[in-house]
């Protein structure tokens, strides 16, 4: 073994993270060795805190510290409009536009047969009970602009429409194939304005 066991172990942990290869993992680990102890402590605590304190909101599925989350409990939000997104990062992208003042529903992904992800692997079944009370008047489908996001939106639209609720899809013209969180806020705000019936 070229590195002492604790360093080798840290390199191993780093290289399990997405987008981090062995070289970067080694660089990060050696950086930690040079860190002041307090900084390393703080990093370790931050990691554990995320696992201990972050949970999924039982209403919208977003990641949160408190259940229900801040958005679900915010009285200033319009309960008549519900925006469906794939991932928490897409919710954050929508929030950044400051255009949307309704509630959210986070699916946790998109339909993708090649990855074995079907409708029942998403939080679609949790969506329908939220619409039962009749309070929600419009559902905005803001799943990604790629074909998987479109398939998910079409599938959701078919489930929701029989309830007599207005269903819209945010307009395209987004850089297709890209992620929602990659799109700049102005583009996304315009996409929201230009949403169409699906």
């Amino acid at each position: 073994m070229l590195y002492a066991e604790p360093i080798a172990r840290l390199i191993g942990e780093f290289s399990r993270l997405p987008g981090i290869g062995p070289k970067t993992a080694q660089r990060l680990a050696l950086h930690v060795v040079r860190m002041p102890r307090e900084q390393a402590q703080s990093l370790a605590e931050a990691l554990v805190a995320v696992k201990d304190r972050i949970i999924h909101c039982s209403i919208c599925g977003n990641i949160t510290e408190n259940d229900p989350c801040r958005i679900c409990t915010d009285p200033g939000r319009d309960p008549a409009i519900l925006c469906v997104v794939e991932e928490p990062k897409d919710l954050v992208a929508m929030e950044k536009t400051r255009e949307f003042r309704g509630h959210y529903h986070v699916l946790g992904g998109a339909i993708s047969p090649m990855e074995g992800i079907g409708p029942d692997d998403l939080r679609l079944k949790e969506l329908l009970p939220r619409l039962a009370s009749g309070e929600v008047k419009e559902v905005v489908l803001a799943t990604g602009p790629d074909v998987e996001g479109e398939a998910t939106a079409l599938y959701a639209a078919r489930l929701i429409k029989p309830l007599g609720i207005r269903v819209t899809r945010i307009a395209h013209g987004l850089p297709v194939g890209g992620d929602l969180d990659y799109v700049d806020e102005v583009t996304l705000a315009r996409a929201l304005e230009g949403r169409r019936e699906i």
Partner: peptide, 15 residues
């Protein structure tokens, strides 16, 4: 995606 679904059938969906 569609060919995958045709081959695998897709997970059983309650809906």
């Amino acid at each position: 995606q569609r060919n995958n679904l045709l081959r695998e059938g897709g997970a059983v969906s309650a809906a």
